[in-house]
Every structure is written in C-alpha cells, then in structure tokens.
Design a protein around this nucleic acid. Structure first.
Length: 452
RNA sequence: GCCCCUGUAGUGUAGCUCGGCCUAGCAUUCAAGACUGUCACUCUUGAGACCCGGGUUCAAGUCCCGGCGGGGGCGCCA
C-alpha cells in the first residue's frame, strides 16, 4: 500500500538533516544543506516567495525566486500552508537582505506531511490567545518558540540540579505514587481503587525519602509527580505537579539542608545561563545567579516586618498571598535579594515529622525558600528520635498504629537527617517572571482539565 | 468548600450601561486574485460568530432565571 502517495505526501527517504536552522551562518555561504522543519511563515510575493522554516532550534529564511529555482521546486512551494512539515535541500547564500544575514535557495522540496487549518496561530504576536484556548491546543501551542523555550529552560534547571546532587553523592530514587495513607494531613488526596482496597495518589514522597535514609542511602533525591486533590483555582496551583525532593542524612542541623539547596540553585542557575542563553533571550529574561549564601530570616522576624508595614499578623498565622507579595517587595528593598530563606516556622504550621526547634520555643527546625515573593521550597530537619516522633504524631492527632510502616524503622538507629521539596514548575515560573503556573506546566491538570 | 467576574466567526475583540439605527463592526485566520527582496509583507474581493434552554417585551447579542463552559480571589499548598 502506498500510504504516503494516497496522503499526497513524500517519504523522507534518503534525506538526512545536515544542519539545524541556528547552525546556518554566512560562513556556510555556497554550501549545500538539508533542513527539516515546519512552514512557519510564508510571504508570497508572486514571482518570489519568502518561506520562514522553523525547526527545533530556530528559524531560517528560504527564498524562492521563480527565476532562480527549478520549475518543480517553485510548483511545490505553491502548495505550502502553515505548519506543513517539509524537507528542503538548498544552497546557503549570505545576504544582508535576509533577517539573519543568510538565507537558503532551495534545490529540492519534499512535503513530509500536510496540515489542516490551524485552530490557533503558531506565529506569535498576531492575536493574544486565551490561556485556556492555548491549553486546549497545547501541542500546537508548544510549537511556539517562546513556549517551547520555557520547557527547554525547565529541563536545564532540572538537569543541572540533578547533576549537582549527583556530584554530592545523592542517589536518585523512584518511590510509589500509589499509597495507603496521607503523609502530611494537610492537602486532600485523590482516592483510587486498588483492587479490593482503597488507595491514594501520593501527595509527597516524604515518608519514602526518609525511609530510604533509614535504609542506608546517605543521600537521596527524587523528581516525580505529586497529586493534590484541592479544588483550588489560582494561578499558582495545579493538581499534579513535579516535586524535586531530596533528603540527606548525618546533618548537624537544618542549615546543612539549606546550604545544599543554595549551592544547588546557584550551580543550576549558572549552568542554565550558560547552556540556554538563546531561550532566555527569547523570553527576555536576564537570569541573575543569586549570591550564596542566601539571606536567612526567622519566620517571626518576617511577621514583624509585615506588621511594621501595617499588617496585623500573629506569629502562628500562615502567610497569605498578600503577605507573600508584600515580602516579595520588602526583601529586595531591605536585603537586596529576591531569594530568601524563612526559618523557624511555628509547630502549628508544620507537619508532624518536623524537628521541633531546640532554640526557639514553639518553633521548628524548618524553612521555606521564597523567590520573588513566592514560596518555592519547603524543607526541614526531620525527627529521627522514635519516641519524639510518636509523640508529635499523637500531638497532631494521628494514630501511630496507622503509620507503623513509617514509624517502626525509626526504632533501629535512624541518623539525623533533613530534606526539602521544591516545586519545579514554580521555580520555572518565578525565574521566567511568568504569572500562571499552567504556563510552566507541560500538560497541566487543574480543577477541570484532564486533557490533553 | 466559599466569593467575584465572564461567554459574540478558527483566534482575539467592539457592541451590552441606556433593548430598536446590528442586514452584528474591527484585527487576525481562511478562500480567490495581484505583486521579484519580503521582515507579523502589502493590496483587492469574498467566507466565517451572538454557549444552551426558559422568561419579560411590539421588539433581546443587549434585561431576568436556570444549565453548561471559562477566568480569578479566599482557604490550602510547591
């Protein structure tokens, strides 16, 4: 069967890409190259056509003057429509008239696949499209260079954070997402059917990370989805997101955990700056590598700062979004940085496994990292002392028997340890100054979005 | 769980306050045509929409009610 012929398209055949569009420079003048990509823009002047071809790395102008190309090439070019997948073999010509100082004069075209009329523009800057409409057509939406760049940057952030932790002796682990019990009590869980039992989707890898410390891995990390069954509808929340978690043993105190994070982010930001400069430029982001060490202030002090600005808050109150925004404004003014650790949170605001403070009564050995006025990390030293852990579980109203699988291993020489969870999408949105987390989530799952 | 806002061509909007001049405007898109240096090409012609149901009224895109869809805030959190 000639499926290609029936569809009116060409097989790629022997054609292989010789260059990406961003590799075409005036120095290649005269060279024959083969490019594969999509019809991005077609400016048809009649006897001369300008085709902007887009591939994974960028765009390049293909110029099709009727007099300088074969009849067949010109004829095929008449068929092009937006987002046709095409192959082109042609000659590189350096010319000041082309947008990048260089263009391609085609010798051969192949239509690799056709495209229907587009539901949304892939060319940016014509009309603003609602985020919801974009997400309905997310696959096309992701083809836009700026949208694609977001996830290349996200990859870079994750890649280099992982690289840093590996250098520090962390072991990457993969823990179950189907679980029997809640870890923190706070967020609601998605209930699922597990044959004849009830189960839940994990809201955090917390227990398993700690158990792997108890299992003899000195340092572990996991980058995996977590699920929150909250019916929230805000620009900062989705119901499934990627949590970047690590846990480390043999710590002296919670500051060891914070030092690891600031060094990790410093490394990751620096490397990201070096590795994806064109993506950052496309998004207009001047990525500043934050200075190490990051500023640290106690939660109680942050509350004081807020109250000095006229808010009326108790130290046991959680930060509401307005307070977060306010701190996001105060920190740069006062400390000259938008990356600040808040430490020593009150017991009331932290989960049962958090080590109570040894210096500040009623507080915990814990921290949040706020970046440009948003919480992106929560971490702490964990309780490694069995009796204390059981006591704290009871104090939070949990039945220790229900958590035996988690608590029992603490009876057998658990080392002091601590760790954190970092929201990958939130880190990305803050870094890129994007105001809706759905934009930095590849395929968001929110209150009522389950597809694509 | 609570609260606010919103629904007009493929996409984004104007019109809605103060119902009639809306045969629903504009941009982009799409179709056909013109153009040999475009730069989101330009120009000509054409195509394409009032979320659904009920109500008020001589008359509903416009007012009211319900349903469905969308956005955001609070709480909670990354």
């Amino acid at each position: 069967m000639d499926y290609y012929g029936t569809a009116g398209i060409d097989p790629l055949g022997e054609l292989a890409r010789t260059h990406f569009t961003n590799e075409i420079s005036p120095s290649l003048d005269g060279r024959s190259v083969t490019l594969l990509g999509w019809v991005h823009i077609l400016r048809d002047k009649g006897k001369i056509k300008f085709l902007v071809l887009r591939d994974e790395k960028g765009t390049i102008q293909i110029t099709i003057p009727q007099k300088k190309v074969s009849e067949e090439v010109f004829k095929i070019s008449e068929e092009f429509k937006p987002e046709y997948a095409i192959a082109v073999r042609g000659t590189v010509v350096a010319t000041p008239q082309a947008p990048s100082g260089v263009e391609i004069i085609p010798e051969m075209f192949r239509i690799i696949n056709k495209a229907h009329r587009l539901p949304i523009d892939v060319v940016e800057g014509k009309v603003d499209i609602d985020l919801d409409t974009r997400l309905n057509h997310r696959i096309l939406d992701l083809r836009k260079p700026t949208v694609n760049a977001i996830f290349r940057i996200q990859h870079s952030l994750v890649r280099f954070s992982r690289e840093f932790l590996e250098k520090e002796g962390f072991v990457e682990i993969h823990t179950p997402k189907i679980v029997a019990e809640a870890t923190e009590g706070g967020a609601n869980l998605f209930e699922i059917k597990y044959f004849e039992k009830k189960a839940y989707l994990a809201q955090s890898p917390q227990f398993y990370k700690q158990l792997m410390i108890l299992a003899g891995f000195g340092r572990v990390f996991e980058i995996a989805p977590v699920f929150r069954a909250e019916k929230h509808n805000t620009r900062r929340h989705v119901n499934e997101y990627t949590s970047f978690d690590y846990e480390m043993a043999w710590i002296s105190d919670v500051d060891d955990v914070m030092k690891m994070e600031e060094n990790m982010l410093h490394y990751s930001f620096k490397k990201t700056r070096e590795h994806v400069p064109s993506e950052l430029e496309l998004l207009g982001v001047d990525l500043k590598t934050p200075k190490v060490p990051f500023k640290r202030i106690k939660y109680a002090e942050a509350i004081d700062l807020l109250n000095a600005e006229g808010r009326e808050m108790e130290v046991t109150d959680d930060l509401d979004p307005e307070s977060e925004r306010l701190l996001g404004k105060i920190f740069p003014e006062k400390f000259g940085t938008d990356m600040v650790f808040l430490t020593q949170y009150p017991l009331e605001l932290r989960p049962a496994y958090t080590m109570p403070s040894m210096t500040d009564e009623g507080m915990t050995e814990s921290f949040d990292l706020t970046y440009k006025g948003m919480e992106i990390t929560t971490g702490s030293q964990r309780i490694h002392i069995y009796d204390l852990l059981v006591e704290r579980f009871k104090a939070k109203g949990f039945d220790p028997d229900a958590f035996a699988f988690y608590l029992d291993p603490f009876k057998y020489g658990a080392p002091p340890h601590g760790g954190l969870g970092l929201g990958v999408e939130r880190l990305t949105m803050q870094l890129l100054n994007i105001d809706n987390v759905r934009e930095t989530t590849l395929l968001p799952r929110d209150r009522d979005r389950l597809t694509p």
